[in-house]
C-alpha cells in the first residue's frame, strides 16, 4: 500500500519536473519579442476597453500608438489630455491638447412637447422600433425613447428621464467615447466640445420637416425660421433642410439666438444664472398722501 502511494507520487513528481523543463525550453525558443513600451502605455490607459478611440481595446490602442510615427491619429477620449500627455511622455512624442468633448442629446421632444400619435408595444429597443416605423409621435426624426444609448454606455453616464422620456447625459461621467452616438438609430446624439466651464449653445432638434409640419409634431421643434441665423453676429449658425445648426468653433456664446428662437429649440447650458438686480421700489405709504 505505502509502496503504491510512493510510486504514484514519484512518477507524478518526475513527470511534472520533466514537463516543466520541456515547457521552459519551448517558452525560451518561441519567445515573442514585444516592445516593452506597449505594456507601459497600456498601464496608463483607463482600461475601459470601450473602443472610443477606434481600436478594439486599450492594448490594441497601445500597440498601434507605439508603432505609429506620431500621435496625430491617436486620441483616447476617455482619458483625455492627461492620459495622452502620459502616453506622449513614454513614447517621447509631442501631443496636441484637444478640447474635451461631451455627448449631447439633440432632441427636446419630451412627452409634454411631443404628443404621442400611436402606441408601440413591440420589443423595447430603438433599433427594432426604427426598423418598423418612424416613431410613435408625429416627428419622424426625434428620440424613440427605448434607451439603446443607455444600454450602450459603459460608464453609466446616460439615463432615461422618466418624466420627459428622453435620455439625459451626466457630464461628469461622460467620457465622449461615442458609443451612444453609434447606438442611436436616429443619430440624435452628437459629440460636442464641452466649452469653457461647460458652457455651450446648441440646437436641440434634428427635425428636417417644414416649419408647420415640425411645429405640429413637436412644440420644441426647430422650424427653420432662420431668426437665429439673422441674429448671430459670429456667423456660426447655418440653416439647411429647415434645420439650423450651430458651429461650435465659431459660436461666441452670446446667447442671442437662444432668446430669439420662437420654439425654444436652441438650448444654452451651464451658463451662470444672472440674478436680476433688485430694482428699488419706493413704497409710499398711504399716510404720506394723507
Amino acid at each position: 500500500m505505502t509502496e503504491t502511494i510512493l510510486w504514484t507520487v514519484a512518477i507524478l513528481a518526475g513527470l511534472g519536473l520533466l514537463l516543466s523543463v520541456v515547457l521552459f525550453l519551448i517558452a525560451k525558443k518561441f519567445r515573442v519579442e514585444e516592445d516593452p513600451r506597449i505594456d507601459k502605455v497600456e498601464a496608463v490607459m483607463p482600461g475601459a476597453n470601450c473602443g472610443g478611440c477606434g481600436y478594439a481595446g486599450c492594448r490594441a490602442f497601445a500597440a498601434s500608438a507605439v508603432a505609429a510615427p506620431n500621435l496625430d491619429n491617436h486620441f483616447c477620449p476617455v482619458g483625455g489630455n492627461a492620459v495622452m500627455k502620459q502616453v506622449a511622455d513614454i513614447l517621447g512624442y509631442e501631443v496636441q491638447e484637444k478640447a474635451p468633448m461631451v455627448a449631447i442629446v439633440r432632441c427636446n421632444g419630451s412627452c409634454a412637447n411631443r404628443p404621442k400619435t400611436s402606441e408601440y408595444d413591440g420589443v423595447k429597443s430603438c433599433i427594432a422600433k426604427a426598423s418598423l416605423y418612424a416613431g410613435d409621435t408625429g416627428c419622424s426624426f426625434g428620440c424613440l425613447g427605448c434607451g439603446d444609448c443607455v444600454a450602450a454606455c459603459q460608464f453609466g453616464a446616460i439615463a432615461m428621464d422618466p418624466e420627459t422620456g428622453l435620455p439625459v447625459v451626466d457630464e461628469e461621467k461622460c467620457t465622449a467615447c461615442g458609443a451612444c452616438a453609434k447606438a442611436c438609430p436616429k443619430q440624435i446624439i452628437e459629440l460636442r466640445k464641452k466649452g469653457p466651464r461647460g458652457m455651450r449653445v446648441y440646437v436641440s432638434c434634428v427635425n428636417k420637416d417644414k416649419g408647420a409640419v415640425a411645429r405640429k409634431a413637436c412644440a420644441a421643434a426647430c422650424i427653420g425660421c432662420g431668426k437665429c441665423v439673422k441674429v448671430c453676429a459670429s456667423d456660426a449658425i447655418t440653416l439647411e433642410n429647415n434645420l439650423s445648426y450651430i458651429d461650435f468653433a465659431k459660436c461666441r456664446l452670446c446667447k442671442k439666438c437662444v432668446a430669439e428662437c420662437p420654439t425654444g429649440a436652441i438650448i444654452a447650458v451651464n451658463f451662470p444664472v444672472i440674478k436680476p438686480k433688485p430694482t428699488p421700489v419706493e413704497v409710499k405709504k398711504e399716510e404720506e398722501y394723507a
Binding site: L132, Y133, A134, S140
Partner: peptide, 11 residues
Amino acid sequence: IGPRADIAGRP
C-alpha cells in the same frame, strides 16, 4: 411635389 409621411410615418 415634396415630402409627405408614408404609412410608417417616414417622409
